[in-house]
């Protein structure tokens, strides 16, 4: 469903941000992309969504990501940004939710049906006509996920979905992620959340893949994590 083949990226005259990255995600897989700051996680997300282009091949649902077919690629892909304020750019949750379906040519009726189903699924019906600046940070994050689900994407990219959320809202977001059947690639420093939501983890450091395997195995490997400026998840240190 998602594939990167020998992808490298550098900003002009800068140092290499990504160096020969290759991985593949099967349909329905939920994968965590972890690494210290500057490891290259966000760059991978930007390459997958066609915000940046590098060397090598990037495929989403067997379609190559290139400037010519961005419209098609982005129809299959939803990207939940780290900052929900940037994601929610319309005045109300409803207007934000209809934005993508209407851009992709869905009729008014189809759009209504779809957003009602998404709001029902995420238990957000009461937020439908709320003003974006009036809802809390947690609600905004859930609403941002809802705007992406309204696109009915095959692949969902999430950048720090639980950043700056309180425990209650963090749990709501984790439950929402677990309820999604799409292929998911999630970047986060919240390793406990990764443990709860992802069956597989890719560990990055300085633009290279250091480890790729089962979440439990990688996140229990204290030496490996510490060698790459990370720590064991809190749920492991407490045991």
């Amino acid at each position: 469903m998602i594939e990167m083949k020998h992808v490298s990226f550098r900003y002009e005259a800068g140092k290499e941000i990504l160096d020969d990255i290759s991985f593949r995600l099967e349909a329905g897989e939920s994968v965590g992309l972890i690494g210290a700051n500057g490891a290259g996680k966000s760059t991978i997300m930007k390459l997958l969504s066609g915000i940046l282009f590098g060397d090598g091949e990037v495929l989403i649902a067997k379609t190559a990501v290139n400037p010519k077919n961005l419209y098609e690629i982005r129809r299959k892909l939803g990207y939940v940004l780290q900052d929900s304020d940037d994601q929610m750019f319309m005045p109300t949750v409803y207007e934000d939710m209809i934005f993508a379906p209407r851009n992709y040519g869905l009729s008014k009726e189809e759009t209504e049906e779809r957003i009602d189903a998404v709001l029902e699924k995420l238990d957000l019906k009461e937020l439908k006509h709320s003003r974006n600046h009036k809802i809390s940070g947690g609600e905004k994050r859930m609403a941002a996920i809802a705007t992406i689900l309204a696109m009915d994407p095959e692949v969902i990219l999430m950048d720090e979905p639980t950043a700056s959320l309180d425990p209650y809202n963090r749990r709501l977001v984790i439950n929402a992620i677990n309820s999604l059947s799409q292929t998911k690639l999630i970047t986060s420093h919240d390793l406990d959340m990764i443990l709860d939501t992802c069956g597989r983890v890719i560990l990055l450091d300085q633009g290279k893949i250091i480890a790729d395997g089962k979440t439990e195995e990688i996140l229990r490997d204290q030496k490996l994590l510490e060698a790459h400026r990370m720590e064991l998840p809190l749920s492991f240190t407490r045991r």
Binding site: D86, F89, F99, N103, M151
Partner: peptide, 8 residues
């Protein structure tokens, strides 16, 4: 964010 949601 707009482009990613099909803005054209």
């Amino acid at each position: 964010a707009m482009l990613l949601r099909g803005f054209h």
